[in-house]
């Protein structure tokens, strides 16, 4: 009888362990999918920037803190182009619309964006200021991933003009 109870307890424990591992695995899988998702932007507007710029805080992910900062810069520029920034808290800033209004612009102009966002690419021209020297907002999510929040100044107007020049965004006066 004692043996039976022991065997049952052992099997129950092993089943629990399997469940926990499976859960952790699926959690990691979901997390990985979220990191790589083109729709996942963790962005907050901090204040109204000076003429033509947007002051935002963006969180990026990476294997090292430096990678995460790089990712955050890329996300900041991508967010301005494809999604826009939300309104700042306590009325600090109004929402900013996306530069590109065509929902399929990323796929239509894929070749351009791949080159634009490549490491050291042109997108860096539109991130004017950042706090990557003082990355106080840093979390180690798991053994392999850092999550870092950086304050960025995005040159929104210049970025919009670049998209208009490339024919990706419509000008306000186009057609007239």
């Amino acid at each position: 009888m004692k043996r039976l109870i022991k065997a049952l307890a052992l099997s129950a424990m092993s089943m629990m362990l399997v469940c926990v591992t499976v859960n952790a695995q699926s959690r990691n899988k979901v997390r990985k999918l979220e990191y790589n998702s083109q729709y996942n932007y963790e962005v907050a507007t901090l204040a109204v920037g000076v003429d033509g710029t947007k002051l935002v805080k963006v969180w990026g992910y990476g294997k090292t803190a430096e990678d995460a900062v790089r990712h955050a810069k890329e996300l900041g520029v991508a967010c301005a182009i494809f999604r826009g920034f939300p309104a700042g808290s306590n009325g600090s800033a109004a929402p900013t619309p996306a530069i590109v209004t065509d929902a399929n612009a990323a796929t239509t102009h894929e070749a351009y964006f791949v080159k634009f966002f490549e490491p050291g690419g042109k997108y860096l021209q539109y991130v004017n200021l950042s706090t990557d020297g003082v990355t106080t907002d840093r979390v180690k999510v798991n053994k392999k991933t850092y999550k870092v929040g950086v304050e960025l100044s995005i040159a929104y107007d210049e970025l919009r003009k670049e998209m208009e020049r490339e024919g990706i965004a419509r000008k306000l006066n186009s057609g007239f």
Partner: peptide
């Protein structure tokens, strides 16, 4: 400055 981009977007 804060509201013009939203206005122009609309």
């Amino acid at each position: 400055l804060s509201h013009m981009d939203e206005f122009c977007g609309r």
